[in-house]
């Protein structure tokens, strides 16, 4: 399982894909309680393979966001987590945080600098990349989310949908191998949602998507995991999990009224790049 830690801050994608037997995410027996004693995660075991897109659904307070914060070591519970074979512990945090791109629910939290360009450059600059490489990354990331040319704009002048896309770009510029998205489609109007979903579907990285937007799971993820009460209560192909009405009802979930699931063919097609 152990993998040599790359010496430089930037491990290239090739170096990563060299040992394909290591899963993208390996979580064993993860428990976490907040300092006031509230238990949030009560023993989570999860393996996500490279290139997989996994939807993480569950009622409010199930521990979904808390779980995401463990993936890059912001919160450290007890149990084992490794990301691409790299244990999430203090000495590896720098590399883990490069590899795990966490996109938060509220883009206002993620865009904290004066201009879009500065925000997108923040991650790569922290990696110690030189100026040229940083601006290359900024361009590449903004292009991927269709926001090229807005480098000089102040983020508070953007629409909410644009803010969400730039928030994604701020982690893409670090060239992450795993994208962890917290409620990517919340508060978006249908057109902005559609745009964001297309952008996310086209990104060739492993994804964990926390969402209440169950159709999003159909669109983006071939696999769905239900988290409830700090435990994983269901894990399987998206169609199988989300079309099981009894299972959904047991965990306070439901598909939108008159929702017609896409055929498995079209749903898969949208989650594959190119």
């Amino acid at each position: 399982m152990s993998r040599a830690v790359s010496s430089g801050p930037v491990a290239t994608l090739h170096a990563v894909s060299a040992d394909t037997d290591v899963p993208a995410v390996l979580v064993q027996g993860l428990t976490f309680a907040y300092p006031d004693g509230t238990e949030v995660l009560r023993g989570i075991d999860l393996v996500v393979q490279r290139g997989e897109s996994v939807a993480l659904v569950g009622p409010n307070g199930a521990g979904k966001s808390t779980f995401l914060l463990h993936l890059n070591g912001i919160l450290q519970g007890s149990g084992r987590i490794s990301i691409f074979g790299l244990a999430v512990e203090t000495k590896n945090l720098r590399e883990v945080r490069r590899r795990v791109g966490l996109v938060f629910q509220d883009p206002e939290d993620q865009l904290f600098l004066g201009t879009v360009g500065q925000d997108v450059a923040f991650g790569p600059a922290n990696l110690g990349l030189n100026e040229e490489e940083v601006s290359l990354r900024v361009e590449e990331a903004l292009e991927a989310v269709g926001m090229l040319g807005s480098e000089e704009k102040c983020s508070h002048h953007l629409s909410f949908g644009q803010k969400k896309r730039v928030a994604v770009a701020t982690v893409l510029s670090m060239r992450p191998d795993l994208l962890a998205l917290d409620e990517p489609t919340s508060n978006l109007d249908p057109k902005s949602r559609r745009r964001l979903v297309q952008i996310l579907a086209a990104l060739p990285v492993t994804k964990i998507v926390v969402t209440h937007d169950l159709p999003l799971a159909f669109e983006l993820c071939e696999r769905t995991v239900i988290l409830d009460g700090g435990r994983i209560v269901a894990d399987g192909p998206t169609e199988q999990i989300l079309l099981d009405e009894r299972l959904l009802a047991m965990h306070d979930l439901e598909l939108p009224y008159r929702f017609a699931p896409p055929t498995s063919h079209s749903c898969r097609a949208s989650s594959r790049p190119g």
Binding site: L69, N72, I74, R94, R97, R98, V100, L102, F104, D106, D109, Q110, F112, F122, G123, N126, L127, T170, V171, M174
Partner: peptide, 10 residues
């Protein structure tokens, strides 16, 4: 939350 977002990006 902003600080967490900053730390997450290294």
């Amino acid at each position: 939350r902003v600080y967490v977002a900053m730390v997450s990006r290294g």
